[in-house]
Simulated assay, not measured.
Amino acid sequence: MVHNAAHSWHTGYCDCSSHCRSCCLTLFCPCVAFGRVAEIVDKGTTSCCVHGLFYCLLGGFTYVGSSLYACIYRTKLRKTYGIDGSKTCDCIGTCCCLSSISICQEFRELESRGFDVSAGWKENVRVKTRGVMEMEAPTIENGMARK
């Protein structure tokens, strides 16, 4: 189900029918899927591995810990793209609807916005800037001189 409103998620919580790859990843390896989403949301400031490891460690101690960590990044993603909602809804959705379902929705959201989530932040930036020529200062014949 795709929403047409300008400020809503592109897919619902359980719209996995056309995104089997991301659904399987979040079901069997939620720490990897979360790490990939968080790396994109953080614009590469922290790697997928660090986010995934932290998510896994928090989940090893308590489900609530990893869910709250995932909730923080759901809120960041939502605010970045102007998606309607609130922190309360993010936390309820992440904690009560299994964090892997909300992570899968976030994964699909980033893909619908043109990211290859599996590639990571740096590769997405490289691909998006490929072919864009870097600006160089113009060369001036005979140099510059004050008059």
Rank of each mutant, 00 (worst) to 15 (best):
I40T: 03
G82Y: 06
S47V: 01
E134Y: 02
S22A: 11
R78T: 11
C29F: 15
P30T: 15
T80V: 07
I103A: 09
M135E: 08
H51Y: 15
G143H: 03
C95I: 15
D15M: 01
S112Y: 06
S102V: 15
S8L: 13
A6S: 11
R108L: 02
T94D: 03
R146K: 08
V50K: 11
V125E: 11
M133H: 05
K147Q: 06
C91E: 08
E109S: 11
E141Y: 03
R36G: 01
S112E: 11
G59H: 05
H51F: 15
C89T: 06
G65C: 15
R130M: 08
M135Q: 10
Q105S: 05
T129P: 00
E134F: 04
L25W: 07
K43G: 01
H51N: 04
Y13H: 05
C104M: 06
T46I: 13
Y73N: 12
V125C: 00
S102W: 07
L27I: 05
L68A: 10
W121K: 00
V50E: 10
T94P: 03
Y73R: 05
G65M: 09
D42R: 04
D15L: 02
A145I: 08
K76I: 08
Y55C: 10
S8A: 13
A6V: 10
Y13M: 13
C96F: 10
I92S: 01
S100G: 00
C24Y: 05
G59V: 08
W121M: 03
G35D: 13
R108T: 01
H7A: 14
H7M: 09
C95W: 01
G44H: 04
I92G: 00
T75E: 12
G93N: 09
L77I: 12
G59L: 03
C29H: 03
E134G: 06
I140F: 13
C97P: 01
C97L: 14
T11M: 05
T46A: 04
V125Y: 05
R36M: 15
D90T: 04
G60P: 02
G114S: 01
G35T: 13
N124P: 10
L98W: 10
C16L: 07
R130L: 12
C49R: 07
Y63H: 02
F28P: 02
R130D: 13
V50F: 09
M144E: 08
E136V: 13
C56Y: 14
Y13V: 07
A5L: 13
G120P: 12
A6N: 06
A38K: 07
Y81L: 13
E111K: 12
Y81K: 07
S17A: 08
M133V: 11
Y63C: 05
R21I: 09
I103K: 01
T88Y: 01
D84C: 10
V64M: 12
Q105L: 08
C104A: 14
G60C: 15
S100F: 14
G143Q: 06
K128W: 11
H19K: 08
G35S: 14
F34V: 10
A119G: 04
T94S: 12
S118R: 11
N4M: 09
